[in-house]
């Protein structure tokens, strides 16, 4: 038990620190990498919670695919950090004060009212318990409706992304080969008759 607790606190500490660095790091690439660390630590905590399938999927999907793409985007975009940070110092005191008050209030409520003596401990699963199987059993049965909606949300995300980016820009110049071939002399050339200049 004690060993599990140590691991839990270790990964939780890493998670909180990494999450803080995501928003404080100066370099956006560093922020993205810290986000990877945050995902990885939460995956470790999920594994501790006996949700090993979810933990592995989090690493595979988010760290492996989403964050890599995200890093590409961050590197390709030319983000002006100075501009992003312009208001940071000005709003920091107020933001930090409110944040601290909220955290303190939450801590008071949580410590007083949430704990093993207040809410029953969930029963530990047997050694041969299989998280993948448990999810597989309910995903297409009990949670079919929610699963389908999640699929629709992804579809909407695709439609929205395409609808917003696929457009004919006004400032790009396209070539139309068939028009180029069909062009006639009269369209391009204009014969101007001019009187010969007189010698002065």
């Amino acid at each position: 038990m004690a060993f599990e607790k140590i691991i839990f606190y270790l990964f939780s500490a890493i998670l909180v620190l990494a999450a803080l660095r995501v928003i404080t790091a100066r370099n956006p690439v560093h922020s993205a990498l810290f986000l990877v660390l945050a995902f990885f630590s939460s995956a470790a905590i999920w594994v501790l919670l006996e949700a090993e399938f979810l933990g592995i999927v989090l690493v595979l999907v988010y760290v492996g695919a989403v964050m890599v793409l995200f890093l590409f985007v961050v590197m390709m975009l030319n983000i002006n950090i100075a501009q992003l940070r312009a208001g940071f110092i000005r709003y920091l005191p107020l933001g930090a004060a409110i944040g601290l008050v909220v955290v303190a209030e939450m801590a008071i409520v949580m410590i007083r009212n949430f704990g093993l003596d207040k809410v029953a401990r969930p029963a530990a699963k047997a050694a041969d318990y299989n998280n993948t199987e448990a999810i597989g059993r309910v995903l297409y049965t009990k949670y079919l409706y929610a699963f389908e909606i999640a699929a629709v949300i992804l579809l909407v995300a695709i439609i929205a992304a395409i609808a917003l980016t696929m457009r004919r820009r006004k400032d790009t110049k396209h070539q139309n080969p068939s028009e180029q071939v069909r062009v006639r002399k009269q369209d391009r050339l204009r014969v101007v008759k001019m009187d010969a200049e007189k010698k002065q």
Binding site: Y143, Y145, A146, I153, V156, A157, A160, L164, R167
Partner: peptide, 22 residues
């Protein structure tokens, strides 16, 4: 779960519609 998913579906569509005039 369904409340949250329905809300996200609605919100995502609305975000895209607001930005529709690129």
């Amino acid at each position: 779960l369904t409340i949250y998913l329905g809300l996200e579906l609605l919100s995502l569509s609305l975000y895209a519609l607001v930005a529709f005039q690129r």
